[in-house]
Design a protein around this nucleic acid. Structure first.
Length: 712
DNA sequence: TCCCGGGCTAATGTC
DNA sequence: TAGCCCGGGA
């Protein structure tokens, strides 16, 4: 059975059919990159009879990985008429892949296989402990900056003197930061090891280390992954590059797809050099350029092209489309941020009704996460179903985080970050003083907190009984878990019991102000319990050598939660479709690789896009511009750019100005509506509005005023 | 140890 | 505005 390639253009088809040897696809935004990749994978499996387990697809976000996997599933299902033909196909993020490799080989690196993955908040906890012991006043430092720096060093594979030199490099950071980071770095790494934990950068770092140091492991995966595809290659950092080199040692069937205009992760160490020098890294590589855009109308593309040409360092390319001119872009000015959200909500309702669009046609894109909040509120008020991608809002809730920490501690007793969160949740009378004493003792003796609990009699005799009870309960839950049969019901029941035993209900009651709030929080916890019951226990990865069945299931569950990867049930796709008929709210970074018929690009103001920090630091604005470009090119049919004249910050309105990137779009592409003067009868205001428009904009003033009066 | 209230600070992005 | 930390009092 072969797959139909009729819907592809000649270059795309070439990319699909070129299955042997290295291939670089330079794919402009919306050039059918995902369908080409999906088709390539489907072609390998359905036509060339490559086993799904031999193919590896890598991307940066869960959203993109999921999308690709879905597309492949659909192609194969339609071609072969049978479901499940993609079983064993791995399409994941770099981090998930590494977590998976490490889970089975952790011992080779001096970790236990039940290691925890720590998130940003946990990293900060650990850093705080270290600073305390180094007698560094940690309030003088932004932990975000220091952790960012440590992450950079790790993704560049630096350690020891090299890392020190990197931190102390002049100019990049203020002196005190350089010193603090240099001092903390090794201690931070050592501490993670004591805690049997890895941060996100470690997953890549140790993943590479594993493949470099263990010949048999490397040989195994080299033999297994006979075809590797990488999405958004322009965003790979040195660890990811190194990982790919290791995985393609034996064969060179690597296909990378990327676009230098969409490189938006240089702040976290991505190196566009990887895509530029692909030909020299993989001699004989074929290069195919895709520049026909299938997504957007030409007015949208013109706007995108106009913005991105302002970047100096790039491969010139003009996107074109045969989809016709389309409608002009809309720019809508609102008085305040709240009204911006309100208007967007109403506009979505209006278009959904008048244009008969499903909710999933709409996306609201913003530069930074906190912007999502008012849109969330506005949509909720209007009863428009929505989902927030990324934002971590669910996992960030205290009750959710703590419940996960409870399970993390059961899975890995040395996970201090987790223990710290739940030891006195609910209040057990283990206060600051006792805890600090234990903490001190643990750190001095290179012990985890959990190990230190057995020595409570030496440092905090008063709390010995409670500590013993706590420790006993955790140990009992662990051994109960180990004895569990491999059945979802048993696992779900165990999870529920664990909450009862640890008094989680009481803890949540204590911190709820009223029964309604409590009910909401408990509902979130129920959702966790539900999701744990959905784990597929027949997955071969749970029965592999280690054989600690139910424990492995919990670990994998925690893995997924920490890496934000949702389980995608293949057979539930249709059901899921109706489920996901929702308006999508997400950051520009999160939107990379996705498309929507109607896109609202909100907060188009200097200080938001481009972000204030990139303006202040006088760094070049090209990455912000690429971000804007990514945003514009997400839109298929309608692009609505909104901005507020004032934004409430810390309770006070702050005036805002039109984004400089909007000024780069030719005026004739934009239809302007000023909603900040609903009653434009006062001559003074009309003049003021008029003047602002003239200042911002060289286009036809009369047209704009008319548009402003009429509304859209 | 826990609770309360005042004061301080705050928000770039992802896994 | 809201969430967090700190200090004082019970």
């Amino acid at each position: 059975m072969s797959l139909s390639l009729n819907h592809l253009n000649s270059r795309q088809r070439e990319a699909v059919l070129h299955t042997d040897g290295p291939l670089l696809i330079l794919a402009g935004a919306g050039s059918g990159k995902t369908s080409t990749m999906a088709c390539r994978i489907a072609h390998l499996i359905a036509t060339k009879n490559i086993a799904p387990t031999d193919v590896l697809g890598l991307s940066f976000t869960n959203k993109a990985a999921q999308e690709l996997k879905e597309r492949v599933g659909k192609l194969i299902a339609s071609g072969k008429g049978k479901r499940g033909a993609t079983r064993g196909l791995i399409i994941s993020t770099f981090h998930s892949l590494c977590a998976r490799l490490l889970r089975s080989h952790a011992e080779q690196l001096g970790f236990q296989k039940d290691f925890s993955i720590v998130d940003r908040a946990d990293q900060k906890d650990i850093l705080r402990t270290i600073f305390k012991h180094l007698n560094i006043d940690d309030r003088k430092f932004d932990h975000e900056v220091i952790l960012g720096e440590i992450g950079q060093a790790k993704s560049r594979f630096l350690s020891g003197d090299m890392a020190q030199a990197f931190f102390l490099e002049s100019g990049r950071l203020p002196g005190p930061y350089q010193i603090a980071t240099a001092e903390a770095f090794q201690k931070y790494q050592d501490q993670l090891k004591v805690l049997n934990s890895m941060d996100f950068d470690d997953l890549l770092y140790y993943g590479v280390k594993l493949l470099e140091s263990c010949d048999d492991v490397r040989a195994h995966y080299n033999a297994r992954f006979r075809h590797i595809l990488v999405d958004e290659y322009q965003d790979t950092n040195p660890s990811q590059f190194r990982l790919l080199r290791l995985l393609t040692q034996r064969q060179q069937n690597i296909c990378v797809v990327g676009d230098d205009d969409q490189s938006i992760y240089s702040w976290r160490g991505a190196d566009a050099g990887h895509i530029l020098e692909f030909g020299s890294h993989y001699p004989g590589a074929r290069i195919i350029t895709l520049d026909q855009n299938y997504r957007s109308t030409n007015l949208i593309l013109e706007a995108a092209n106009a913005v991105i040409t302002n970047n100096k360092k790039r491969h010139p390319k003009q996107l074109w489309s045969d989809r016709g001119q389309g409608e002009p872009l809309n720019e809508v000015i609102l008085e305040e941020d709240r009204e911006e959200a309100e208007w967007v909500g109403e506009e979505i309702l209006r278009r959904a009704t008048e244009e008969h669009r499903p909710w999933k046609d709409f996306a609201v894109l913003y530069r930074s996460n906190p912007q999502s909040r008012i849109f969330e509120e506005a949509l909720r008020r209007k009863k428009v179903p929505y989902k927030i991608v990324g934002g971590m809002s669910f996992l960030d809730r205290k009750e959710i985080k703590n419940v996960l920490c409870l399970w993390r501690l059961i899975a890995n007793h040395h996970d201090d970050a987790s223990l710290r969160r739940i030891i006195n949740w609910p209040a057990r009378g283990i206060g600051k003083t006792s805890f600090e004493a234990l903490n001190e003792y643990a750190f001095k003796n290179s012990l985890s907190l959990f190990s230190a609990l057995t020595r409570a009699s030496e440092v905090a005799p008063r709390v010995v009984p409670v500590v013993d009870t706590f420790r006993g309960a955790i140990l009992t839950l662990r051994s109960d878990l180990e004895k569990l049969p491999m059945e979802s019901v048993a696992l779900a029941q165990w999870a529920r019991t664990s909450l009862e035993v640890m008094g989680v209900r009481k803890a949540i009651e204590e911190e709820s102000d009223d029964p309604i709030q409590f009910a909401k929080k408990w509902e979130n916890v129920e959702e966790l319990l539900h999701s744990i019951g959905l784990m597929k226990l027949d997955d071969p990865m749970f029965s592999e050598e280690g054989g600690n069945g139910p424990v492995a299931v919990i670990q994998e569950y925690l893995n997924r939660m920490m890496l934000q990867a949702q389980e995608q049930e293949e057979d539930e796709k249709d059901k899921d479709d109706s489920n996901s008929n929702q308006v999508t709210l997400l950051t520009l970074h999160g939107a990379k690789g996705l498309e929507y018929p109607v896109v609202f690009l909100v907060g188009m103001e200097d200080g938001l896009l481009p972000h204030q920090r990139s303006i202040d630091e006088a760094s070049d604005l090209s990455e912000e511009r690429r971000l804007c470009y990514v945003g514009i090119t997400r839109a298929r049919d309608h692009l609505i750019l909104t901005r507020a004249k004032n934004r409430i910050r810390y309770g006070k309105p702050v005036p805002r100005y039109r984004s400089r990137f909007l000024n780069e779009i030719p005026a004739e592409l934009i239809l302007l509506t000023d909603r900040s003067f609903p009653d434009a009868s006062s001559p003074k205001e009309v003049v003021a509005a008029h003047e602002e428009r003239v200042k911002n904009f060289a286009g036809s003033i009369r047209d704009m005023l008319l548009a402003g009066r009429k509304g859209i």
